[in-house]
């Protein structure tokens, strides 16, 4: 694979939320990149900082969020140091997003079509009304909606239709990257599956880059080339989808897969991971996974494991990667 500059490069990102009780260490030194036309899945239990990363990438963080360190390069420009005016042009045109609560992502008082036209108009993608309608119709067809529905209001759409409309809106300005943050969690499984597969098809057809975010590794596996496993604000493991499933190195990755037994038909025992992710107001010392890790030793409690390349494009942050234990069995 040729090594051109990635469309997205996140370098040692550190972000805190300031609260009355203290600082929440929501992102702590995360590094990853995304090639043009590829897709990356971010997976981890709820509260691991996935949404925080997504919002950082668009610089849409709430007021109490402070980016302490690091850089986010999108198409060669650092959006953290970018001016506000430049940022406004960047959003949606370079990087768009399908929100976690996509059900409520549409404004109830404007028609769905108008809300898409608003984005097109803002980024000078259209010249007049006729062109706008044509483009919206095109987008509706692309996501499997009847173009006649563009003059309808969000409350007239079903959940699945709203989801598609939101995807159409994200596609409208032909962004380089689309982030889909738990885009289908609110929908029933069948609709969820269908929409995800269609999204992947559209992504490949249009050659965009995509970041899928989910707490469900099965969902991520289906659509992503690469998978990043996040735990408590850090990247635990990052590798190609194949490597993650064939050679998981981090105990947390392993645990996630056991918790979701349907993957690749393998028979794992159904024991789910005990406990829950830590409160990031008081993150554990050393490896943040150590209170829940069956393999934790003294060093795990004291020193943070480095995020290291273990060959190819496989990175892991663990003092005692899994394969070692597997060898002992």
């Amino acid at each position: 694979m040729s090594k051109e500059t990635p469309i997205l490069a996140v370098e040692n990102l550190v972000m805190h939320y300031t609260t009355r009780k203290g600082d929440v260490s929501a992102i702590d030194g995360v590094t990853f990149s995304l090639e043009k036309g590829h897709s990356l899945g971010l997976v981890g239990e709820s509260g691991c900082g996935k949404t925080s990363i997504a919002f950082s990438l668009m610089r849409l963080l709430p007021d109490n969020a402070k980016i302490k360190q690091g850089s986010i390069f999108i198409d060669g420009e650092d959006i953290i140091t970018m001016s506000y005016d430049q940022l406004l042009k960047f959003r949606w045109r370079k990087i768009a997003m399908v929100f976690q609560a996509a059900m409520n992502a549409l404004n109830p008082v404007y028609t769905v079509g108008d809300q898409i036209v608003e984005a097109l108009d803002l980024h000078d993608m259209i010249k007049n009304k006729a062109e706008a309608e044509e483009r919206v119709a095109e987008l509706f067809e692309l996501v499997g909606l009847d173009p006649a529905l563009m003059h309808r209001y969000p409350h007239e759409f079903s959940g699945g239709m709203r989801q598609r409309a939101v995807i159409a809106m994200a596609l409208s300005c032909e962004p380089d990257i689309i982030i889909a943050d738990e885009p289908t969690t609110a929908l029933d499984v069948i609709v969820q599956d269908r929409i995800l597969r269609e999204m992947k098809k559209i992504q490949q057809k249009l050659g965009m880059s995509m970041i899928y975010i989910s707490h469900d590794i099965a969902v991520i596996a289906e659509v992503s080339d690469h998978i990043g496993v996040m735990y408590a604000g850090r990247m635990a493991e990052l590798a190609s989808g194949v490597d993650i499933f064939e050679r998981p190195l981090h105990p947390y990755t392993y645990a996630l897969m056991r918790a979701f037994p349907s993957i690749k038909g393998e028979k794992h025992d159904l024991t789910t991971l005990p406990g829950e992710p830590p409160d990031l107001l008081y993150p554990p010392t050393g490896c943040r996974f150590h209170p829940r890790c069956p393999f934790a030793t003294d060093i795990c409690k004291e020193k943070q494991p480095p995020f290291e390349n273990v060959g190819g494009e496989h990175y892991v942050a663990c003092w005692h990667p899994m394969e070692v234990h597997n060898d002992h069995h």
């Binding site: 959003r91 949606w92 045109r93 768009a96 409520n104 992502a105 404004n107 809300q115 803002l122």
Partner: peptide, 25 residues
């Protein structure tokens, strides 16, 4: 509301987010 987030993500300047999306609702 989430649609305010959407409006910002689309690149709308704060004044329009306020007047067109928030105030209208």
């Amino acid at each position: 509301e989430d649609y305010i987030q959407t409006a910002r993500a689309k690149g709308l300047p704060e004044k329009l987010v306020r007047d067109k999306h928030a105030a209208r609702n």
